[in-house]
Design a protein around this nucleic acid. Sequence first.
DNA 1: AATTCTTTGTGTACTTTATACACTTAAAGC
DNA 2: GCTTTAAGTGTATAAAGTACACAAAGAATT
Lengths: 281, 281
Amino acid sequence: MFGNNKSILYFAITLVSVENTITKSSRIREKRKSSKIVKELNKYISVDCVIFGFDYDNLNVLLVDRTLNNDVNGEVLFSDMTLTGNHIYEDEKIEDAASRVLFDLTGLEGIYLEQFKTFANPDRISKPNDRAWLLNDGRDPNKRIVSIGFFALLATQDVTLEWKGRNVKWVPVNEVKELAFDHNDILDEALIALRNKLLQEPIGFELLPDKFTLSQLQKVYEIILGTELDKRNFRKKVARMKYLIPLDEKQKGVAHKPARLYMFSCDVYENTRKDIFGFIV
Amino acid sequence: MFGNNKSILYFAITLVSVENTITKSSRIREKRKSSKIVKELNKYISVDCVIFGFDYDNLNVLLVDRTLNNDVNGEVLFSDMTLTGNHIYEDEKIEDAASRVLFDLTGLEGIYLEQFKTFANPDRISKPNDRAWLLNDGRDPNKRIVSIGFFALLATQDVTLEWKGRNVKWVPVNEVKELAFDHNDILDEALIALRNKLLQEPIGFELLPDKFTLSQLQKVYEIILGTELDKRNFRKKVARMKYLIPLDEKQKGVAHKPARLYMFSCDVYENTRKDIFGFIV
DNA sequence: AATTCTTTGTGTACTTTATACACTTAAAGC
DNA sequence: GCTTTAAGTGTATAAAGTACACAAAGAATT
């Protein structure tokens, strides 16, 4: 019934019609006008977004500067970084809150976003800096805050960072220092979830531009899984994945033999995917 | 670095010493005295436990009867079922809250429990019955409640249900009718998470008694994955899993050839597991 | 125009795993 | 001792995993 069914349904797609049928998971990356209606924020529920960005060399995570100044003399009391996140509006779905955080930072919509874990232990706001930060912000550090963790995947070159006022930047995940609150834990769990997902479903392309080369895709796997892969074997493997559509188009402006470009076809994937596979079947 | 390393570390374990080194994931199923200190419950955060129980024929889920009577004449206003769950105490970790719910219902500790998803959308308490139920209970149905979903795995025969006052029972997952709140959604997501996990890591034995036969283990996979497996191929596959330890002991009291019993060795598993495996490596 | 540099793109032999398939054996109940 | 029931085992074929090396394409340099 499940299992590795070899005679799977397979939709033939000609190279001519490819551009029409291919989207990033049927969602489109585009800008929109911010049409946020100001409503009341829920004080107890927040979403934290671990926004991963790939730049061909590193897996990066988007971090926000958190600097607390002395009210009187302006002296810097401490300065560190946090993951991106926000409290949710009272009538807002949590997925929408995560999309909103992402949109406010990147101006992008429709990018890959997945809930991976929730953090709600009573001691998650216990460090002095965290308490001082919340107090300064008029919040009660003794109240438990539930943080629902999402991770997002995008190509760094697809995004021009825009966050009014606060400093936000890409940091390679293996260069991340001590973060605010329990954000190191959240990042660690996001990485675990990302690795698992990457081994389970074809989401590697979400970290690349719409058109990508096989070497770029291979690099995604190598960097995130921390392993080296053989080029020929990797290509043999992806050749079996009919949803990776070769285009009649090549890389431009590279000082070497230009590679063929590929796209991911969500349609083909949905129609050819095996139900489940892994440990036993 | 990762990948399918064939020369994996392997601890030889003789049949003589097996009983000492084998536990259910190093945790012990035992009873304890309830030592709950009554503290304040957080009104906004709850845990819902999808408690799965396997009985060799079905995958069951533990459900609680929810009947609302008219205060005046005692007439039954409605009667349906819910998943098991509770709000958390103000100083309690969410994993501890889930363990507590489980312990209160089953008297068991140390059983497999995993956070799988959080449910917090604003419309999750919108059905009239749900609102009436909360009102009757002195709670505000307009306040958003975050529910952190956990699933638990156990063998139904390991547990004698004990919940003072309220009716609680095992229901086969494919016979579950409409549940309270968004509990059908939660159950569906728990099933998806269970299937994924079952294909990813050896947790099937968590649904069986400590000592089990290979046919019982096979049945776990068949029922949960909804597929039929070939007996010889299944055994060939588990023969490679060194953490399934054959015992010098056989089934008793069965009207046919008794099967050899096996145990899961958490030690061997931890020492021989490949780091990650699946889609690409 | 020729040379260098860099990355692309391809094939084969071997090993391991997956799949399909049927009969004998052990114990209990009658 | 005969029947019933599930346990336990092997082989042949197909598919996938793994290890490994060199020619070709374009850009940059001389």
